[in-house]
């Protein structure tokens, strides 16, 4: 795993206790939002599992002996969800997508890549987009299929792409 640049708050013990003062809490949540998104971006992760997360270094600073309680993790995640950076995968709220880019941003990035590489008006498979050699250096390489589809749907709504099903495959055509 790449060396991650932790923000100063990560070494500040009270960061792991939900702050009673609302103004301070707002700063705390802002720092958590930022940290969670950066952490997932740096590790190219797109999903978060609540059970696993409790022992992940993200929420548990072992050297400081401080961890974010489950209740507080939920507060922080809910805050992310409200801002469009998170979506629950199940009703029990055990797993979620973490969008360190919003779906619109993903859509734009993919479209930019397509137009730069002359893929407009041709069909690419979805697998090719996220796992193909051509996209190895792109940020959306390794994007989860579901997230990719949602991002392409966002493009579809703008009339810049169309999702296509053929044989057993799924593809997309850019306009």
């Amino acid at each position: 795993m790449a060396e991650f640049d932790w923000p100063w708050q990560y070494n500040f013990p009270p960061f792991f206790t939900l702050q009673p003062n609302l103004a301070t809490r707002e700063k705390q949540l802002e720092a958590w939002r930022h940290l969670i998104l950066e952490y997932h971006r740096a590790h190219k992760m797109h999903t978060l599992d609540i059970t696993e997360a409790q022992n992940s270094p993200l929420f548990y600073n072992k050297s400081l002996k401080r961890k974010l309680s489950v209740e507080t993790i939920f507060v922080v995640l809910e805050d992310l969800r409200k801002r469009g950076h998170l979506e629950w995968l199940d009703k029990q709220h055990q797993r979620c997508y973490v969008y360190w880019r919003t779906l619109e941003e993903w859509g734009k990035l993919i479209y930019k890549w397509a137009s730069k590489n002359g893929m407009v008006n041709t069909v690419c498979t979805l697998y090719e987009l996220t796992n193909g050699d051509d996209t190895r250096d792109e940020e959306f390489h390794g994007l989860e299929m579901d997230v990719l589809k949602k991002a392409l749907q966002a493009l579809e709504n703008e009339g810049r792409a169309e999702l296509i099903f053929f044989d057993e495959n799924e593809g997309v055509k850019f306009f």
């Binding site: 013990p13 206790t17 702050q19 003062n21």
Partner: peptide, 13 residues
Amino acid sequence: VKEGMAWVDDQAK
């Protein structure tokens, strides 16, 4: 705490 100068920490063992 109210002035935003202090943060509370409830995990000091």
